[in-house]
Nucleic acid binder design. Sequence first.
DNA 1: GGCATATAGTTGTTTATGCAACTAACCAAA
DNA 2: TTTGGTTAGTTGCATAAACAACTATATGCC
Lengths: 146, 146
Amino acid sequence: MPNNQFKKGELYSFMTGKASTAIARRLQKNLKQHNIEITVEQWSVLYHLWKNDGLSQQDLCNATFRDKPSITRLVDNLEKLKLVKRVASKSDRRINQVFLTEYGKQLEDETMNVANTTLNEALTGVPSDKIDICKEVLQIVYDNLK
Amino acid sequence: MPNNQFKKGELYSFMTGKASTAIARRLQKNLKQHNIEITVEQWSVLYHLWKNDGLSQQDLCNATFRDKPSITRLVDNLEKLKLVKRVASKSDRRINQVFLTEYGKQLEDETMNVANTTLNEALTGVPSDKIDICKEVLQIVYDNLK
DNA sequence: GGCATATAGTTGTTTATGCAACTAACCAAA
DNA sequence: TTTGGTTAGTTGCATAAACAACTATATGCC
């Protein structure tokens, strides 16, 4: 039996993503406690815009590993919250560039502090060399399947 | 700055759970290709029932790391599909035990084969000692936050 | 026994996901 | 320049998630 060097039964928590679910819930809770009224999914879009404002919706699909309808609706909701604004690209009228509003930009510092705190909570007691290996494994898994 | 021995920027894919999302999508695709008409979420419930038939809904909450309303509705849908049946517990009338139907039992072998295949696809090229470390890290993260 | 509290499960509402089908705009080849 | 294929984005529909509020049953303490 090829590639079967692992105990499967213990591995299904991989599939069900309990760790990343736990992180997402904790981040949501921490955001709420700081009165930052966005969802973790909205955060994941804003995170990429804070690094690189004006990304297209397709760019956001690639960055967040979501499909196009998901991004359409996340951007819809972010627009309703006055956090971003769609701007039609001059060079290609199919493309919407998504830009942060002033309000959206203002949210960056506090929100990223909350995210960093959450990550610290998650990784308490994990040696950094093991974090590196875990990251590496998850990257290979992602590359194998994406 | 405490507990800051890692590069945060690279770690947000942890939070967004890209690897586990990729696994779930591939499993869904593989199930469909084998004409197994269940969702991956339904699979995660059935998986625990195959190991231990007759679990309560609360047991399923704990096993799958979902909240009670989620399990209520997943069991609703599994009942509609004639895969499981709720049975009120004799000893405690608050409790619903969830039992597999014959049809639900029949699905086990082929479905678990598909799940195992999916896991092999995901873990291709990952040495088993690194899988163990990754599992260990994800377990600590889960324990830190659950 | 009776009351307070805890536990098991359900329902309502909002948000998000996945897939398929669709429109609009772009591009390249005849 | 028209036609056929590709890319960007939207809409419709079914399933699922998180949170809060609710009902029903059980338990423990007086």
